Simulated scan of single mutants.
Amino acid sequence: MQSDELKELKGLCKNEQCFNKLKKIVSDLKNQKKEKERHLELLESAIRTDYDSILITDLQLEEPGPEIVYVNEGFCKMTGYSKDEVIGKTPRILQGPKTDRKVLDKLKERLSNGQCFFGQTINYRKDGSTFVNQWDIHPLTDKEGNITHWVSYQHDITERKEAEKQYINTKIEFDELREETHRTLIDVDVQGNIISANKAFRSLIGYKKDELRGIKIWDLLHEKYLTSLKHRFDQADEHAFFNDKEFKGIIKHKSGLPIQVKGTSRLFKLKNETIIRAEVENISLQKKVMETLNKRCHELGEKLESN
């Protein structure tokens, strides 16, 4: 601690023993703060490739809540708000006329039931401009397992949406879009044959491009999900099962290790065939992040209680 801080602390104490005790408490709190900040930086770094923004709110869902208690620099960059401008406010400041009410209702319903939420809608920056925001919201719990906060991983997918529109309208080259994007994508035909997978997907499962030739999509799944997916491909109505649908499951890495994933699938009507494009997210990493966050919150709470 700086000498000025020590003088101020000493002025608050009646004797040397009290001063030494208070000095130790302040020093411990500062170290805990630094440790917490370091862990947050590590956690943000771990998911930076998938999400631009992290936002944590309290539990209250009814207006005027929930109250924002933490945002990272990615949130500030994405929305144009500073941390001081949003701490204590509600995420509703990002909503506007084009924000989909149905999506918000679904979000509230799932959180009210203690469930995670994955979705997207139009949000508004501080300057009034719009962007397409994708949320991935999870509960934070205390050591008794009670939900205390919500952590929201957010991603500006405006460019992705525009790229998809351009792709559909101008039929740009399939491989060009797929390889240049940072998304994790795999394309299959309506018989389940893997047409292609971008570099991010191949890295996720550990296969080379040539190794995926002749493989059906269900060959990559854990046996628990194999039969149900094959059944869907046996149905005549691809639109009902694969267009704008969310999914969760377990895929197998080439080494045999299971990887928990979720994502969305869409249909693309080309001249001579229909392609099912799946965008995949690795949620095994996200679960590890949540476990670490919860553990650190518990440890910090216990330390503060003991002091």
Rank of each mutant, 00 (worst) to 15 (best):
Q2N: 12
S3G: 03
L9W: 09
L9K: 10
G11R: 11
G11V: 03
C13A: 15
C13L: 02
N15P: 10
C18S: 14
F19Y: 15
L22F: 12
K24I: 07
K24W: 02
L29K: 13
K34T: 06
K34D: 04
E35V: 02
H39G: 02
E41P: 05
A46E: 12
T49S: 15
D50E: 15
Y51Q: 07
Y51M: 08
S53V: 05
Q60S: 06
E62T: 05
G65T: 05
G65D: 02
Y70C: 02
N72E: 07
N72M: 04
G74F: 13
K83F: 07
K83A: 13
D84N: 13
D84G: 12
V86G: 09
K89C: 10
I93A: 06
I93Q: 03
K98Q: 13
K98T: 12
K102I: 02
D105M: 05
K108I: 00
L111P: 04
N113E: 09
Q115P: 04
Q120L: 01
T121P: 01
I122G: 06
R125W: 08
R125E: 03
D127E: 14
G128E: 08
T130I: 09
H138A: 03
E144Y: 01
G145Q: 02
G145T: 01
G145S: 00
I147P: 00
H149C: 00
W150S: 00
Y153H: 10
Q154A: 11
Q154Y: 03
E159D: 14
R160V: 09
Y167I: 09
I168Y: 01
I168G: 00
F174P: 15
F174E: 10
L177T: 06
L177I: 06
R178Q: 11
E180K: 14
T181W: 10
T181E: 11
L185P: 06
I186M: 05
D187V: 07
I195L: 12
A200N: 15
Y207A: 10
K208E: 14
G214F: 05
K216F: 01
K216Y: 04
I217Q: 05
I217P: 02
L229F: 07
D234N: 15
D234P: 04
D234K: 12
E238L: 14
H239G: 08
A240W: 05
D244N: 12
K245Y: 01
E246T: 08
I251M: 08
K252S: 07
H253A: 13
S255K: 11
L257Y: 07
Q260V: 10
K262S: 13
G263Y: 05
R266H: 09
K271E: 12
K271F: 05
E273N: 14
E273T: 14
T274Q: 10
R277V: 04
A278M: 14
V280C: 05
V280W: 13
N282I: 07
N282V: 12
N282M: 11
K287Q: 15
K288R: 15
V289N: 08
L293Q: 01
N294E: 06
K295Y: 00
E299Q: 11
E302H: 01
E305G: 01
S306R: 10
